[in-house]
Each structure stands twice: as structure tokens, then as C-alpha cells.
Design a binder for these strands. Structure first.
Lengths: 138, 138
DNA sequence: TTCGTTAGAACTATACTGGTTACAACCGGT
DNA sequence: ACCGGTTGTAACCAGTATAGTTCTAACGAA
């Protein structure tokens, strides 16, 4: 199966850098720490900007957080970067046969359970702030 | 982002059918209820068989559960069908720069948190048995 | 104005998904 | 022993997401 894109871990990396090294935080510098192409970084910063997590000064360079580091959670980052259709982690097969008891019921019954599982995961993410992460660095 | 494959929901559908309509449960019949191609069904049944959840009688047709329906959970099905490399839901960017504090620490710190989030989700899945699902059908 | 930077379009290679066709192997019933 | 329905796979396809590259335009401070 496809894992959740590394965009997420890169985004967290970017925000951690911006939080701990606010000066010198150009796309190229970040790309050097993440060890990837600057364009990848710019794309992800674009998503973070769209989500209102960072401000970017075009031209002169530099990215700033728009919130305190204890106000940004992993869930914020996840939502900013993992743009899933209507936010559903689990996919469903389409149009099961309505003439069959299982086909008629499976979607609504299963979807409710999977929604709970997804929510459990997201709640865990919402409990971890950027601050929490950064203080664990050595 | 890529959602978790509909293989999962199809697998649950298959098992629900096998549990509720044990006779007549050929690949073609199941495909008719799921509304897809029989080969898709056979492939997924192959995964379920590999995981020890079902027995299949080749040639004459028919699939049987190997456990009671209250002994099969959504997590069992998920694990059987969503074959992720070493079971990690979240992907990581490779080789962050070890010369940078963030690059050096991000992976281990973040991975621990994401592992917890994943575990929270899987635990929810493990609390839902096939029996639980089936009794909700109308 | 110039230079480093951000913004983003366009393109590539790779891989997964869901699906199809085709064919071999299986096995109970006649 | 054959037949017919079934399972088990291989091979292939179109569509799409990922991660990455190259290139160009626009921005803005010195």
C-alpha cells in the first residue's frame, strides 16, 4: 500500500527549522537540511502558507511562523499537507450491489467504524505540538 | 494524498458475505455483490487466505472462514490486505542532514509520535469484530 | 540595477490502483 | 475419463500520485 506521503514529515522538518533557526531559513538552506530539492521545499511551504501556518517574504527570502510553536500541532501540519478528498483516510469500493444484504449495508456500517479509527489517529496528532517535538531534540 | 486502498473495504465485504451466505460463495457471486471483476476478488481472497482468515476449495468453489466471526477483527483484515513495508503507515523523507540539529533528531522524535497515532487507529480497528459489523446489517 | 530569493509551470521516472483478458490447474458430477 | 464451473496467476492497461528535475518569471533589499 501507499504510505502517507513524506510531504508530512518534510513539512514537520521545515516548521521545526523555521522555529529553531528563524534567520537564514531560505528554501535552499532548508533543502540542505532535509536533503532534497529546493523546489520540493517551496511546494510544501506553499501548502503551509495556504493553511496559514507560515508567512513567506518573497524576493528577499525567509519564512516565519504565524503562530506560537505551542499552538501548532501535528494535526495542523497533517491537514495542511495531506490534502485528501473530503479528509477521508479510508477508501471505499463503489456501488456495491443494493440487492444484497451485505452490499446494501456494508458502506454505512463500515464507514462509521473507520471514521472512529481515523479520528483516534487524528486526535493523537492533535496532542503533539511543535514545541513538544522541538524540546526533545538533543 | 492516496487513500488507504479499497482492497480493505472489499475484503471486509467479502468476509461479511462468506459469514452470512456460506453456501454459493463463489468468486463470481462475491464479485456480483461487490460490483467488480472476479479477478479482483480472487486476488483479495488470496491475501485473506495467506493471512489464515479463510480456506478456499479450489476447483469446486467456495470460501469458508477459519475462525469464528467474533474472532476476526477489522485489524486482522487490515493487516492481511494492506501490505505496507514493515507496517508503517507514515512515510519518512530519507537521509536528513545529520550536521543539522533538526535533521539529526527529526526522524526518531517524530517517528515515535506517529507510531503512537498509528497504534491508536489500529487499536480502534482491533475493537471491531466481523460479528459486530454483521449484527448491524438491516 | 543586480543578485539572491520565492513562485510555479512543465516534464520525467517510478510505482500503486483498479481493472481486464487469457490461460492453466483443480475437482465434483455425470 | 471427460466436462463445466471454479480457483490461481500472469500479463497487460489506463489513470493517478510521488518525488524529483530544469527552467523561467517575478519579487525586493542593498
Amino acid at each position: 500500500m501507499k504510505q502517507i506521503s513524506s510531504r508530512f514529515s518534510i513539512a514537520v522538518h521545515i516548521l521545526s527549522l523555521v522555529a529553531t533557526v528563524p534567520s537564514e531559513c531560505t528554501g535552499d538552506f532548508i533543502a540542505g537540511s532535509v536533503n532534497t530539492n529546493p523546489v520540493i521545499i517551496r511546494k510544501i511551504i506553499g501548502l503551509l502558507k495556504k493553511a496559514g501556518l507560515v508567512e513567506v517574504r518573497a524576493g528577499v527570502g525567509g519564512t516565519r511562523l504565524t503562530k506560537d510553536i505551542d499552538q501548532i500541532t501535528l494535526l495542523d501540519v497533517y491537514r495542511a499537507v495531506e490534502v485528501i478528498e473530503n479528509g477521508e483516510l479510508f477508501n471505499f469500493h463503489n456501488h456495491p450491489n443494493p440487492l444484497c444484504t451485505v452490499g446494501r449495508n456494508i458502506e454505512s456500517v463500515l464507514r462509521a467504524e473507520l471514521r472512529e479509527a481515523q479520528t483516534a489517529m487524528e486526535q493523537k496528532l492533535s496532542q503533539v505540538s511543535l514545541q513538544h517535538l522541538i524540546t526533545k531534540f538533543e
